[in-house]
Amino acid sequence: MPDLILHHYPMSPFAEKARLMLGFKGLAWKSVFIPSVMPKPDVVALTGGYRRTPLLQIGADIYCDTALIATVLEHLKPPFAGPPQERQHPLGGPGEARVGGEVPVLFPEHLKGVTRIVAQWADSALFWAAMGHTLSPKGAAAMFGSQPPEVGQAFAADRSAMRNGMTGLRAGDAASAYRSYLRRLAHMLHEQPFLFGDTPCIADFAAYHPLWFTRVVNPAMAGILDATPGVLAWMDRMAALGHGQPAKFTSTEAIAVAAAAEPAPLADEAFQDDHGIPLGSRVTVAAESFGPETTEGTLLAATRTHYTLERTDERAGRVHVHFPRIGYVLKEVRA
């Protein structure tokens, strides 16, 4: 199996979600720091346009969005015990064998539906409430006050462009929602260490990262967490999972890895045609809301869970760029 390469930056909340999932799985990975604001030429060389953080690269395969990255990591160390078995490519195709044994799972079999639903809520409603509070005018002043004015101005302009007309919560409304959501998490944690029992699952990682941003990245705004001590104790347990085994890597090295590799074969999964766009068409994929940049390529797969586009870059070579279906818009490129 080629190295796992995570493209991220330290203060990114969604990157913290990915870093902790790598730690939970006990995985070794290459750490590539990328800019927090545009331009991001090395990122775009791999994705073709998508610029949200983080990205997971495996050879010449680029996985966008932590919802899909979680699925990929789950398949890399699948839950089974017994004799060695052939491991599948994260989205299909042959993989390597690994010795049987119990492995931490992100998606418990009997809770797959409800944990995904809670994770989707946490990555959206909870995330935006947390950001609205933590990056309120008061929060932004605390976070960027000690830096040159142009740093905060560049960050604000970049995120404003990414919102692309989204209606944001006002600071007071965000704080109200955030407090309510924290109480709901506290109720879920009553008499159990994690949201759905004795071990973390995808819902924990999705709920943790917006709170981490408040507590760790902008602690001046972290007083809102004090009313839910059970949530703070849970955050300590999550932080203790660590980040696995990262090793420093550069964007240049990562692009060279992609250029030297071939995308992994895709599984023969059913084509779910909800758009009337046949495979082999020239298409674009973009996020529904936050981060409007598009990736253009040839549609190779449109399964019930994900899209795969093939594209060629003069530096990265031929790559496959993968997106989850939920939260992304597929359009045909017409001449």
Rank of each mutant, 00 (worst) to 15 (best):
D204P: 03
A67L: 10
A207H: 00
L76I: 05
Q147W: 14
R87E: 13
F249Y: 14
D204C: 06
T134N: 02
V257S: 08
G139I: 07
V43R: 06
V321H: 07
A18M: 00
W234G: 05
L299Q: 06
Y307G: 06
H190F: 13
E74L: 03
S180G: 15
E102S: 11
T298C: 02
V216M: 12
T167N: 09
Q272C: 06
K331H: 10
P94Y: 09
L330F: 03
A259F: 02
P94E: 11
A302V: 05
G197K: 04
A129N: 11
G139P: 01
A239W: 15
A60W: 02
H243V: 15
V44G: 07
Q245A: 13
M1N: 07
Q153F: 10
G145K: 08
F80P: 09
Q192Y: 01
S281W: 10
L126W: 02
S146A: 15
A316F: 08
A247I: 11
L76D: 05
N164M: 04
P13V: 03
L20H: 10
W121T: 11
F290G: 13
A60L: 03
A186N: 11
H89E: 14
G291E: 13
K25R: 06
L189T: 04
E253A: 10
H306W: 14
T53R: 00
T53M: 11
T298W: 08
V257A: 10
A70V: 07
V285D: 07
G95L: 05
P219Y: 03
A254K: 04
T252G: 14
H243C: 11
A157H: 04
M131G: 00
R334P: 02
A206D: 01
D173W: 15
M166N: 12
G230F: 04
L27N: 11
L126T: 05
L211I: 13
G93N: 15
V319I: 11
D313C: 10
H89G: 15
I117S: 09
F14P: 07
P94F: 09
A203Q: 01
P246G: 03
P137M: 05
G132W: 07
R215I: 07
P210H: 01
L68D: 03
A186V: 00
H133V: 02
G276H: 08
F194C: 02
Q153H: 14
Y178H: 14
E269I: 09
G280W: 00
E296F: 02
A286P: 09
E74V: 09
H110L: 12
D42M: 12
V231I: 03
L106I: 08
V99C: 03
R215H: 12
I277E: 05
R52P: 06
L4E: 02
E96D: 10
R159I: 10
H322P: 05
P84I: 10
L4Y: 14
M235K: 07
S281M: 01
M238E: 01
S31E: 04
Y181T: 08
H133L: 04
K138E: 15
F205V: 03
R282F: 06
L22A: 00
P148S: 11
F323Q: 06
E109W: 05
A261L: 03
W121V: 13
E86Q: 15
A227N: 09
E86D: 15
A207R: 00
A154V: 08
L135Y: 11
L126N: 03
M131P: 05
A267N: 08
S136C: 14
A122H: 01
